[in-house]
């Protein structure tokens, strides 16, 4: 019962936070609401037995990405930017489309047929701990994609510097 109560808490608050992220006029407020959303997301991961990911979510989003956002926003003076319209004129079309997508998701989810169950049951993970199990998998079976991901990050680091550098 308590589990369901928590779930309903997340189910109600997270879409609201998400909506707040996209609806605030001041980007700084958006980023702050995004921070709240990330913390809730991390908590939701705990419910789903993904402790490692919960930690990563907090560290990566709350600790890195959103701080980066704040830095960049602070760097620019956007006084006049805040004066204009919040949304484009065609927003009703987009709204209709979004509702359509939600309905499609619900339709798809309600017809969902579960696939075969894998070997990592809750008991198996408990015996090994989540992080260890994930690490073993990542550095054996998914080693190559892992290296590719590191390369992507390297490119992102170099690319961001090249793009943002003043040409003079």
């Amino acid at each position: 019962m308590i589990l369901q109560a928590f779930f309903w808490y997340f189910a109600i608050t997270m879409p609201i936070f998400a909506f707040l992220v996209i609806s605030r006029k001041n980007p700084v407020h958006c980023v702050l609401w995004m921070l709240v959303f990330s913390i809730h997301s991390a908590a939701l991961f705990l419910f789903l037995n993904a402790e490692f990911l919960a930690a990563v979510e907090l560290i990566l989003y709350a600790g890195a990405v959103l701080v980066l956002f704040i830095f960049v926003i602070m760097m620019m003076s956007m006084k006049e930017e805040l004066a204009g319209e919040l949304v484009i004129g065609e927003w009703p079309i987009a709204a209709a489309l979004s509702i359509g997508v939600v309905l499609m998701f619900f339709f798809g989810v309600s017809n969902f047929a579960k696939g075969p169950s894998g070997p990592y049951t809750i008991e198996a993970i408990k015996a090994e701990t989540n992080t260890r199990a994930l690490g073993k998998l990542l550095f054996t079976e998914y080693l190559f994609p892992f290296e590719v991901a590191s390369l992507i990050l390297l490119i992102a680091v170099v690319g961001a510097m090249v793009l943002a550098k003043r040409k003079d």
């Binding site: 484009i88 065609e90 079309i93 987009a94 489309l97 997508v101 499609m104 339709f107 798809g108």
Partner: peptide, 22 residues
């Protein structure tokens, strides 16, 4: 030339395709 217009068309196309698949 509006990014959002392209986005709307893109999502609409995706919506149609997935509906057909369903």
């Amino acid at each position: 030339g509006y990014l959002q217009h392209y986005g709307i068309v893109l999502i609409f196309g995706l919506f149609v395709l997935i509906s057909i698949a369903f």
